[in-house]
Computed example of a mutant assay.
Amino acid sequence: MRRTCIFGGLSHPELTDFICEKLGRKPDKVELRKFANGETSVEIKTSVRDQAVFIVQSGSHKTNDDVMELLIMIAACKGGSAKSVTAVMPYFPYSRQSKKKSHRGAITARMIANLMHVAGVNHVVTIDLHASQMQGFFKCPVDNLVAEPLLARWIRSTVENWKEGVVVSKNPGGTKRVTSLADALKLSFGIVTTDTRRPNMGQSMYNSLETTITLVGNVRDRPVFIVDDIIDKAGSWIAAAETVVKRGGATKVVCMATHGLFGGDCLREMDECEEIDAIVVTNAFPIPKEKREGIRKLVILDVSTLLAEAIRRNHHGESISQLYMHHD
């Protein structure tokens, strides 16, 4: 690739290396340091004048550092007369804060988009935004790639009787994602709904809340694929897995998501859950080595080919619509 620079932030250096490997090149040199007081320092070590620049920076467990580092790198490249700057953000930080949750809440995802605009970004490439309408927060084009073809390929190549499978959403909000994958694989789908309410409003408010879990759809003697975009807390995944096995009679449960955030002990708890057979995520979000130690059920799918191809096509002005399609 001629006349491009690819820089990687500190959030996910391994993914940057994988992407560059697929493009047959090495990442360009940038020096990223922290001052003693915690401030981020960025020094671009390659000439970016009149170049198309791609900065690979996902969210990680150090979200605020990642965001600040990205903004400074964008500004540094713009200050160095780069022709264009594309932010390649496989996991978009703060994407779950894309609407007001309370009267005095902030729409933080929109604020991040505005900050990136101020820093000088020209284009954003990401994977499976938590809410696809977030693309409207940006003042530049956004390629919101999907990991669904990767997940579908894994199901077809790994699960023997996948054609009998059912794709299940663990909450009503995720049904669009689930029906899309079910359509692609020509499978039926189901929903696990969790309803929390007080048994009797006449009683004291300190009474315990009653949770009713309902399974919609037939999963008896079938493998189940529970799908969402993010795995962060184990509770709802374990509850859904137990519901489809104990109440529904499912034979196998695979938990699938694009972004494995695995907050706290989430990964270990899911790994120890008897009803869960596999946990499938991509490497869009970096999973630290210490979290993966001793985990048996985790499968990590590689998105570097998808991102490398998106970079290549963007640079050459080719259509990227093919990247959304399923290929056997």
Rank of each mutant, 00 (worst) to 15 (best):
W154R: 06
A109G: 06
Q57R: 02
K99N: 11
D232R: 03
H326Q: 12
P27R: 11
R177D: 00
G173A: 11
G317E: 04
N114E: 14
V224K: 01
Y206G: 10
S236G: 11
I19S: 02
C77Y: 00
G235Y: 02
H327T: 14
H103K: 15
A109L: 09
I226P: 01
W162D: 02
S319Y: 06
N122C: 08
D277F: 08
K29R: 13
V192S: 02
A152L: 04
K297Y: 10
K139N: 14
T179M: 10
L307I: 04
I19F: 05
K297A: 08
L150N: 04
G249K: 10
F285D: 01
K99G: 06
K29W: 07
E210V: 14
L181D: 00
V227T: 10
A241M: 13
A109Y: 02
G79D: 12
E148L: 15
K62D: 15
A82P: 11
D232T: 06
R96V: 09
D50V: 06
S41D: 15
A310C: 14
A239C: 11
L298H: 00
L298R: 01
K83R: 13
A131Q: 14
T258W: 06
P223N: 07
G59W: 05
G260W: 10
K100H: 09
G263P: 05
R96P: 07
C5V: 15
S47E: 13
T86A: 07
S11K: 01
R268V: 09
Y324Q: 11
M256V: 11
V219L: 04
N144Y: 12
T4N: 10
V280W: 01
F189L: 04
R312V: 05
M201T: 12
K83W: 05
G249N: 09
G136Q: 11
M73G: 03
K233S: 14
A82D: 03
E14C: 07
V224F: 00
K163V: 08
M325V: 13
F54Q: 04
V178M: 00
E290P: 01
I6F: 02
S180Y: 00
A152H: 00
F262D: 02
T126W: 00
N218Q: 14
M116S: 10
M205N: 13
T194Y: 03
R197H: 15
V146I: 15
A52G: 01
E242M: 10
T179F: 07
Q51G: 04
F92T: 02
